[in-house]
Design a protein around this nucleic acid. Structure first.
Lengths: 336, 336
DNA sequence: ATGAAAGCGCTAACAG
DNA sequence: CTGTTAGCGCTTTCAT
């Protein structure tokens, strides 16, 4: 059996209270006893049980992170950023891929609360705000990533999707493109809508009338982007540029264009969103709207931890600004 | 406050023992009381505290997963596979990216044991088998992924790296290549050595003498692969094909070749290892040695869970076989 | 079939 | 400065 605090106390000839105090650095302990106890702990290779101390009312130093799919590079990078910051704070993170399946999400939420996590970072698309609301009412610290609950006071870190879309749209418009297609995601989230809206506003500002037929639905897979783009290229008057709401879709678009024998970026300019590692790997390297992934993760953790520690009562919404990252997949329109 | 078992007991007019029994389906409870208690639990939205029950000696239904870097697609996919299988078993997983930093690894291990995880899946390169040995001696269930501790009896799931390397080597040899470079990782792991050795054996079997100068060191980044390949291409007699020990390196090699103005795959054939999503995205699509990532994750979890539940005393080593996935980055040697 | 009571390992008053 | 003691929420004999 693992040694307990009793074993240490006995071996050190002190009470368990004393041991507890040296473990936590609380109370007043003479230097001599402290050192002695420390030595005994070391000898016994004693490791305080965090489950016991959690039961006593202290926190579990554990948070949950829900996201759609860890295998999606964007979320993997988010998770990594969250994990790193958590580790610095001494927290561990439970990873929860929900595939945006409401059932799975509920199951995970309930598991997390049963395990008494100190807080939850939600990077999944919120479907049942019902459940989330309950959590918030129960004072479970929550931080939202890339998500917005307009009706609820909850810490949130997001990027300005509208601006991102706008940057993409202006970039393409400035390159002289007039027929700009948009590949959107299949979930109707605010984030997705804003990106589209931003892009369209940029187009309008440039005197381009958004064409409904150039608005196509993809999803979160390369394949879906490919299919959507293939359809778009079949139009009588196909687009010369496309803005995809995420990098995966953009990559699908590139692959579709290639398959149709188009030269990239000469025949089709592509702009993505996220700036994941994929954007640097695809050929041509993808022009994309960069989300400050590290920063998103860090800030979410910081908000959450502050709330867990009770250092902060005010909730806040942090809006990070995206950045246009120009690579080679976008080029001036060549009116041959 | 969250309701406790006492609240339920009181509201239901029974003892906490009874409630506990209906929660766990243990003991003998009349159908009537059971139903009644169930209803009360529901009304109170009672959720048993797993930290309390863990303290009582039951397991925590939590495992730890250590890996080098969650942002690396290969490990992200592994993590996803592990998580999925765990979820089916009702386990949660603590994610631990160590960057192969021994300090971080030790810190994570100790945190995990303090939190009394039921077991640990180790997908990091093992550096201090010291610490791991201690864990195993303390009967902490451990499963190794893609790792081998020749001196220890521990559950392990791995792929046959030698065979993978061999497949890569024969593939290139069969395509007529004679000058085959190898890009290895910078950590001297058995896995890495085996891949190289396999490739070289295949070359020898094809009558090719491995050339030391064509063996170059990369790492786990695209950049390192690029740099290594750039050097290789500067040789008087540069390679016509390259086998990279992971997809990241292979991608770096492709990028380097492109930058030097080479046509791919005509001027250089590239074979990677892992078959991550990146292999499908790079242009040309990467011929690579496919690891059955899903299966690796599943089996590791299964071994671990069996051991946790005490359903199994015998340890085992599962060797999964890799598979050559031919895409477009490899082509017959054209002796111009 | 149900309940009383003794822990699990630790923290936090409260005494001394 | 150190020890005693009462829980934290739950499981598990052992009685009844």
């Amino acid at each position: 059996m693992k040694p307990t605090i009793y074993d240490v106390a006995q071996a050190a000839g002190v009470s368990i209270a004393t041991v507890s105090k040296v473990i936590n650095g609380t109370g007043r302990i003479s230097d001599k006893t402290r050192k002695h106890v420390l030595i005994i702990m070391d000898q016994l290779k004693y490791q305080p049980s965090m489950v016991a101390s959690a039961l006593t009312g202290k926190s579990t130093f554990t948070i949950g992170l829900t996201l759609p799919d860890l295998a999606n590079p964007f979320f993997a990078e988010i998770a990594r950023a969250v994990e790193d910051r958590c580790h610095e704070f001494g927290f561990n993170v439970f990873i929860c891929s929900t595939d945006n399946d409401p059932d799975k999400e509920v199951k995970y939420f309930s598991l997390l609360t049963q395990k008494r996590v100190d807080g939850i970072i939600v990077a999944t698309r919120i479907q049942n705000d019902q459940f989330l609301k309950k959590l918030i009412q129960q004072n479970v610290p929550i931080a939202l990533i890339t998500n917005e609950m307009p009706t609820l006071a909850v810490d949130t870190v997001m990027v300005d999707d509208f601006l991102g879309g706008y940057q993409a749209g202006s970039h393409l418009a400035e390159l002289g493109h007039r027929r700009i297609a948009i590949l959107k995601e299949d979930t109707d989230t605010k984030s997705n809508r804003e990106r589209i809206h931003g892009c369209q506003q940029a187009m309008i500002a440039a005197g381009i009338e958004p064409d409904e037929r150039l608005l196509s639905i993809g999803g979160f897979t390369v394949q879906s982007g490919k299919e959507a783009m293939t359809e778009l290229l079949k139009l009588d008057n196909p687009p010369t540029a496309v803005f995809a709401c995420n990098d995966l879709l953009a990559i699908g678009a590139i692959q579709a264009a290639r398959e149709q024998g188009l030269q990239l970026p000469a025949d089709l300019s592509v702009v993505g969103f996220d700036n994941t590692i994929l954007a640097t790997i695809i050929d041509p390297p993808l022009t994309t709207i960069g989300q400050p992934i590290q920063e998103i993760g860090r800030q979410a953790v910081e908000l959450l931890v502050q709330e867990i520690k009770g250092e902060k009562t005010l909730k806040q919404r942090v809006v990070l600004l995206p950045e246009l990252v120009i690579r080679s997949s976008s080029l001036a329109y060549q009116n041959v």
